[in-house]
């Protein structure tokens, strides 16, 4: 219902990244007697020019050596003519490096925790394989991996069905309850499954809407595979980086939010929003597609987020919360003292 800001927050520590790249590229080149720059670039997922730059540096690097003056034999060397003329890399002299580097404790920890998080995907039903892989990572780390863990994300059988749908090239259909409370049968060509922490989403081509839509897995019910062939392929449908895109019909709502609750609404704050602080509260703006979504968001943030304007949005939130609170007063409400506290 609102835009999520997707950009990475940490600026890469460039020199360290470049060093890891150099230490990783050398063993790869050693294993390939002759490799085209474009192939190496594709393998490492970097622009070809980054490979060329690294190779130029490797070609003049080495060890101080006996004379401590970097004599020719103390340096890596490459077939420079081949490199310049055919854009291929051939190492002709090697120094110091024989093998790929180990993982750092944090690198291994990140991969192990990532595996743990993904262990409930239907693809990874083989828990044994995950355990083997984790122990390989531990042994391949230069010191014990940092204790970072992520609970296996809970996914239901819907994921397996989505996969079958793609495998068989047949559309998926399911009942979908949108955040306005309307239920509808949707027919979708699955394009990609995404997740954020414990929440899972399907992005797919919605045949009813004739557009890409994002669906929460926990709002889908009675999914089934149809007999209609899938007509949209992920390679042909560009998916924007953000899960939820803004639309021209979006509504803008002003909120007062406690600073501590700001991260909880960050996904709904449009880029470039100017916020001001007063009395310990931050006044900011969120973008929502309708007030039905807003009332759920605000009711989850009691005492830490309040709608300032428009008045209509305030009223929707008030009525939602008041109607709910009233249920606790009505005489037919179950008697809470009937059960023991657990």
């Amino acid at each position: 219902m609102a835009k999520r800001s997707g950009a990475a927050q940490n600026p890469p520590r460039l020199a360290q990244d470049k060093l890891v790249f150099l230490l990783s590229l050398v063993p790869y080149l050693m294993d390939h007697d002759r490799v085209r720059v474009v192939d190496a670039a594709r393998h490492f997922g970097v622009p070809p020019e980054q490979i060329r730059e690294a190779v130029r540096l490797i070609g003049v690097s080495g060890i101080p050596g006996e004379t401590a003056t970097y004599q020719h034999g103390d340096l890596f060397d490459i077939a420079w003519d081949t490199f310049e003329e055919t854009d291929e890399i051939v190492l002709t002299n090697l120094v110091a490096i024989d093998e790929s580097p180990r993982f750092s404790a944090r690198e291994a920890a990140a991969l192990i925790a990532g595996l743990q998080y993904l262990s409930s995907l239907p693809e990874h039903a083989d828990r044994e394989a995950i355990a083997t892989l984790s122990s390989k990572l531990s042994r391949g780390a230069s010191s014990a991996p940092s204790p970072v863990g992520v609970e296996a994300s809970e996914t239901d059988s819907t994921l397996a069905l989505i996969r079958t749908s793609v495998e068989n090239g047949l559309r998926l259909e399911f009942d979908y309850l949108n955040s306005q409370g309307q239920r509808e049968r949707r027919e979708v060509d699955p394009l990609r499954v995404e997740s954020i922490d414990a929440d899972w989403y399907l992005r797919g081509w919605d045949h009813g809407r004739e557009a890409v839509r994002t669906f929460r897995l926990d709002r889908m019910s009675t999914p089934a595979i149809t007999v209609e062939p899938i007509t949209h392929d992920p390679r042909d449908v560009p998916l924007p980086d953000v899960l939820f895109e803004g639309s021209a019909d979006d509504l803008f709502v002003t909120l007062d939010v406690a600073a501590s609750a700001l991260p909880l609404i960050a996904d709904y704050v449009p880029e470039g929003t100017v916020s001001s602080e007063h009395d310990g509260l931050v006044r900011t703006t969120v973008r929502v597609s309708h007030y039905h979504g807003l009332k759920r968001l605000i009711a989850r943030l009691p005492g830490v987020a309040t709608v300032v304007e428009p008045a209509e949005a305030r009223a929707v939130v008030r009525e939602w919360a008041a109607a709910a609170a009233a249920r606790y007063l009505s005489p037919d409400a179950p008697d809470p003292t009937r059960r023991e506290a657990m």
Partner: peptide, 15 residues
Amino acid sequence: LSAESRRAILKLRSL
């Protein structure tokens, strides 16, 4: 952990 995972992948590609 984005820097760590990026570097881990470079080391993996090295193989």
